Simulated assay, not measured.
Amino acid sequence: MELAFAGWSGVLILLMYGAIMLGVGIVTYLKNRNVHESLDEYYLGGRGLGVMVLFFTFFATQYSGNTVVGYPPTAYRMGYEYLVSVPYFILIIMVYLMFAPRMYLMGKKYKLLTPVDWIEKRFRSKPVSILAAFLMLYALGNYLLEQFVAIGQGVSGLTGGQFLIK
């Protein structure tokens, strides 16, 4: 009888989390429904977030489900030689920090919204901008798929395998 209820506490936690997020969304909507909605407001928080938010955005992007669920199995399969990946992860953040603050300032100065806006401003070519957008979307595909795997693994672990698809 005890096995029948295994994982339901995790289901309850997920439902509570969903209800809290829905509540936050409704309260935020009601609070800001008179604010003029623009792409700047939606994507960039009205451009008032600052460099620390930029840093944590890069950090969350780099060390997300991909790092938690994607790389450990690879490290397990490859063994000790995969240890070289740790400096590479740190190096990615260092490279971000080399160009991100300058791009942040340029974005504020020229009211740029996306990296493709910068490319369009720099090269003044619609075909180059479209190619850049497709290349960026292709590169993000790996991260998107890994997030789905991470969410699936997280829900499976939290619910005790209650919702495994067989």
Score class of each variant (00 low, 15 high):
Phe55Met: 04
Ala75Asn: 15
Tyr80Asn: 15
Asn66Cys: 14
Val53Gly: 00
Val84Phe: 04
Thr57Lys: 05
Val86Ile: 15
Tyr88Gln: 06
Tyr80Arg: 09
Pro72Thr: 07
Asn66Ala: 09
Gly79Ala: 11
Thr57Glu: 12
Thr57Ala: 09
Gly65Ile: 03
Gly65Tyr: 12
Ala60Leu: 03
Arg77Asp: 08
Thr61Arg: 13
Val53Arg: 02
Thr57Met: 10
Tyr76Ala: 03
Met78Ser: 05
Ser64Thr: 02
Phe59Asp: 03
Val86Arg: 08
Arg77Met: 07
Tyr82Leu: 09
Val69Asn: 10
Tyr88Ile: 09
Ala60Arg: 00
Gly70Pro: 05
Leu54Tyr: 02
Leu83Trp: 08
Met78Trp: 06
Pro72Val: 04
Thr61Leu: 09
Phe55Ala: 06
Val84Arg: 02
Leu83Pro: 01
Phe59Asn: 08
Val69Ala: 14
Tyr88Trp: 03
Val86Lys: 11
Glu81His: 04
Thr57Gly: 11
Gly65Thr: 06
Pro73Ala: 02
Tyr82Ile: 03
Ser64His: 08
Met52Ser: 05
Pro72Gly: 05
Tyr80Cys: 00
Tyr80Val: 10
Val68Cys: 07
Glu81Ser: 08
Val84Trp: 04
Gly70Lys: 04
Thr74Cys: 11
Tyr71Glu: 13
Phe59Arg: 01
Phe59Glu: 06
Val53Ser: 01
Phe58Ala: 10
Ala75Ile: 09
Tyr76Ser: 02
Phe58Glu: 10
Ser64Met: 01
Tyr80Ser: 13
Leu83Thr: 15
Thr74Arg: 12
Thr57Val: 10
Pro87Val: 07
Glu81Asn: 06
Gly79Cys: 08
Asn66Gly: 15
Thr61Pro: 02
Ser64Tyr: 04
Pro87Ala: 06
Val86Asn: 13
Val69Phe: 13
Pro87Gln: 09
Val69Met: 11
Val86Ala: 13
Thr61Gln: 12
Gly50Asp: 04
Arg77Tyr: 11
Gln62Gly: 01
Val84Pro: 01
Gly70Leu: 07
Thr74Gly: 11
Tyr63Val: 12
Thr74Phe: 13
Tyr71Val: 08
Tyr71Met: 13
Ala75Gln: 12
Pro73Met: 03
Pro73Tyr: 05
Tyr63Ser: 13
Phe56His: 00
Tyr82Phe: 14
Tyr88Ser: 08
Met52Lys: 15
Met78Asp: 12
Tyr76Pro: 00
Gly79Thr: 15
Pro87Glu: 11
Ser64Gly: 15
Phe55Tyr: 15
Ser85Trp: 06
Thr74Ala: 11
Asn66His: 07
Val68Pro: 03
Leu54Glu: 11
Gln62Val: 05
Gly50Tyr: 01
Val53Cys: 00
Tyr88Asn: 02
Gly50Leu: 01
Phe55Gln: 07
Phe58Val: 09
Gly50Ser: 00
Phe56Leu: 02
Phe58Tyr: 13
Phe59His: 08
Asn66Leu: 10
Met78Glu: 10
Pro72Tyr: 07
Thr74Glu: 13
Gly65Lys: 03
Pro72Met: 03
Ala60Met: 02
Val68Thr: 14
Gly79Ser: 15
Phe55Asp: 03
Val86Gln: 15
Phe59Trp: 12
Phe59Gly: 01
Leu83Gly: 14
Ala60His: 00
Gln62Ala: 04
Gln62Trp: 01
Val84Lys: 05
Pro72Leu: 13
Gln62Arg: 06
Tyr76Lys: 03
Thr57Leu: 05
Phe55Thr: 06
Ser85Thr: 10
Ala60Ser: 05
Ala75Leu: 12
Val84Tyr: 11
Ala75Glu: 15
Pro73Glu: 04
Phe58Asp: 05
Val68Gln: 15
Tyr82Gly: 05
Thr67Met: 14
Ala75Pro: 10
